[in-house]
Computed example of a mutant assay.
Amino acid sequence: MDTLLATLVSGLVLGSLYALMASGLSLVWTTLGVFNFAHGALMMVGAFIAWTVSEAVGAGPVAGVVAGTLGAGLIGIVIERLVIRPFYASRNMLLVTAMTTLAVTIILERGAQMIWGPRLKQLPPLVDGEIRLFGNAISAHEALLLVAAPVILIALWRFTVSSKIGRSLRAVGQNQDSAALIGVDVPTAFALAFAISAALAGLTGALLGSIRFITPAMGSEPLTKAMIVVIFGGLGSLGSTAGAAYLIGFIEAFLVLWVGLYWTPFALFLLMILVLLLRPNGIFGKR
């Protein structure tokens, strides 16, 4: 029973991280219709900015998380303006933007290597101490993550369905021409969606930097897991993405328990292939 509860808690933590990461990917896809392969690198940059502000400057972990979130958001705006917007009218937009965002990933990783060096870094936790959840001890930082992730996702969902700006993003995602005819500034909506997505990536990186070491390549694995989450959930709604994120978190936690850490990625990719074959629109996606 203790092992089962510990696995459930681990799944909740993983699901919270994946939900924050994948929601940004889903937002960009539903608004712009492109897949941002630089999302993991933006997470890494957010973690490094948070470390710089928190440790090198000495402003503390809270200021570091805020700086990492805002910094990644600003970099996201620059990426959208320089390497994605010029190709909106291209017939091969999906392929071109995939290539350009992959190039941005390499640039950001090499840039981080030059700026921060190869030495491993780690952020202090936002909250010290431990708490007990279902009889299992977890760090207070992880407990904060369990609470913060649903709150952030609910706030993002309310923003997209209740605010005028959020509804304009949804309108652009449904039909760009019609949105432009009713007065929506489509390029600005694209930039805003990309900025929110990048900010979520930076926030995830800043939070993850207290759990794992910060390296220039730290975004690769979370990006892969976020891709699996988006495929499982189906592209179309934040609710589907969040549900799939927690599902993948639990599946991964139990796979690590049953088949081991080495075979878990193989099993996850096998499940992803099965979902693509049997449910191309995702488990929660509509036909």
Rank of each mutant, 00 (worst) to 15 (best):
A226E: 03
L82A: 11
N136C: 09
L145K: 10
A242T: 12
A195E: 12
I214Y: 07
V78K: 02
G33R: 06
L82Q: 14
A206F: 00
V172A: 04
H141T: 11
A195K: 01
Q122S: 10
A217C: 02
A50F: 05
G68W: 00
W258A: 14
M21P: 02
A47N: 12
V45P: 11
T105G: 04
T160E: 13
G209T: 00
T3I: 09
G58V: 05
A143S: 14
A137S: 15
T97E: 06
A140M: 11
G249Q: 02
R81A: 15
A198S: 13
T100C: 06
P222D: 12
K164D: 15
T264H: 05
S10L: 09
G233E: 10
R170F: 09
Y88G: 06
L223T: 01
I84W: 03
L181V: 15
L235T: 15
A179C: 03
I283K: 08
T69G: 03
G236M: 10
S197K: 08
M272L: 14
G260A: 03
I75T: 07
V172C: 05
I106V: 12
V62Y: 05
L94M: 09
N281W: 14
S163D: 08
M21F: 06
G11Q: 07
G11S: 04
I248S: 05
V62G: 03
A189K: 00
A143E: 04
A244C: 11
G15A: 06
N136V: 15
A201H: 01
L257D: 06
V13R: 11
Y262N: 14
G202K: 01
G202T: 05
L257Q: 12
A267H: 02
Y18Q: 12
E142A: 11
F194V: 01
G64D: 08
M21V: 14
I106W: 09
Y18D: 12
S16M: 01
G183P: 01
V66S: 07
V259L: 04
P125K: 06
T241L: 03
T224L: 15
A193G: 11
L203T: 01
V161R: 12
L133S: 09
T52V: 10
W258G: 00
H141L: 05
V184C: 10
L133D: 12
D2C: 01
N136F: 02
L133Y: 02
R167D: 15
L102V: 13
A149P: 07
A143W: 07
A98W: 06
G205Y: 05
